[in-house]
Design a protein around this nucleic acid. Structure first.
Lengths: 207, 207
DNA sequence: TCGCTCATGTAACGCGTTACATGATTCG
DNA sequence: CGAATCATGTAACGCGTTACATGAGCGA
């Protein structure tokens, strides 16, 4: 009767879409469509999920008895499935929360391009930087709206948005401050061969 | 004779391990083992790759003529394959750099747990926060070492480490400043049902 | 000799993304 | 009437992670 999410027997459970759905359902009943919307607004800074993963996840959760599908409470459209978290589902989620390790991983093509900026034409690099700066500004605005916007933000929302705001603002400030320097350096810098043998001797002595 | 990386015909090319390897090889010849080490020191803040993806990637690149394997230049151990970037490989990498969109995606179990902190015991949440804070301090030290450490850092390395330093420091400061408040709030806050219907009406009007 | 670092690879698995397929309703 | 939104799902694919398999040198 193990209610562990995901039937894997190897490795440590990273948070997956199923847990994400369970978590969101602790906030109230919702449909798959609702969940997608929720993920791409409130959670968009640290996770992503498409229909292709949400709907199968909900079906599996229902099969495991962690959520229950209360048909359709709508008048107009017929095909709307409202999912409700069961007691088992709630405790499974809390248990997985407790067991999860605080992973925080970044996959950034932007930083990669920045690192290899000297291989690009300077105007291309400049456009690249400006695009990223503009994107950051958009995200910052969204986070500010989320933190004290119309939707009566909860303490959790304010907290997470505040974190994102701090981080994105720092990134933005750094890029704006160093923009011209970055472009100038990329122009001047030689390819600079790497010393593979001694690489990483002094740092990265962590877990 | 298309030298596009990855034979996919759908979707936009996100930077994958093959491109990562090509990029690293612009810095000089290296083996798969060297590349792994390099990725987990200099690039560890924004990408990750294990042997299970690096070795097949190198083999494919060699088959495509983008890298050449110059056997073993070592005296002692026999089995060391040094890879060398070909002209075709270099131009393929530059071309893919030019085409790539500045993706920047974060997958954070930490923020998820933070959001659902009220479901955990306060001491558990505190331990969680402290752990993350300690991790950030370790990373900050690594980045500082990378920026002006022994290994004669290039301009690119200083740049990228500086960016990481700015971001991680901001995260660290935010968590330290709000630590007690977070725990207190988690204790006090009610589950606070979410209004699914109106969620995300005001924000997230971006590309 | 025990264990660590160096060194290369393979196979299975998990899991998310993308594209495809479908259809009602609402609004201009 | 056509486009956008609401709404649910399936199938294939890509691709990285994990675990497994192997072996030589070197220092304690």
């Amino acid at each position: 009767m193990r209610a562990s999410l995901g039937g894997r027997c190897k490795g440590i459970a990273a948070v997956n879409v199923k847990e994400l759905c369970l978590g969101a359902l602790t906030l109230g009943d919702a449909s798959g469509y609702d969940l997608k919307r929720f993920f791409e607004t409130t959670f968009n800074q640290f996770c992503a999920a498409g229909y292709g993963s949400i709907y199968p996840a909900l079906a599996e959760l229902a099969a495991e008895g962690l959520v229950r599908c209360a048909g359709n409470a709508q008048g107009g459209r017929p095909e709307r499935k409202l999912y409700h978290l069961t007691a088992a589902g709630r405790s499974a989620f809390v248990s997985s929360l407790r067991q999860s390790v605080p992973t925080h991983r970044v996959k950034s093509d932007f930083l990669l391009v920045l690192f290899f900026g000297h291989l690009l034409a300077p105007e291309h690099l400049a456009a690249f930087l400006d695009r990223r700066i503009a994107d950051l500004e958009t995200q910052i605005q969204c986070l500010q709206a989320g933190r004290h916007g119309g939707q009566a933000p909860t303490a959790s929302t304010r907290l997470v948005c505040g974190y994102g705001l701090a981080v994105q603002s720092a990134a933005h400030a750094y890029l704006v401050q160093h923009r011209d320097e970055i472009i100038a350096t990329a122009l001047a810098s030689p390819p600079a061969a790497h010393h593979w043998n001694a690489a990483g001797q002094s740092d990265a002595r962590h877990a």
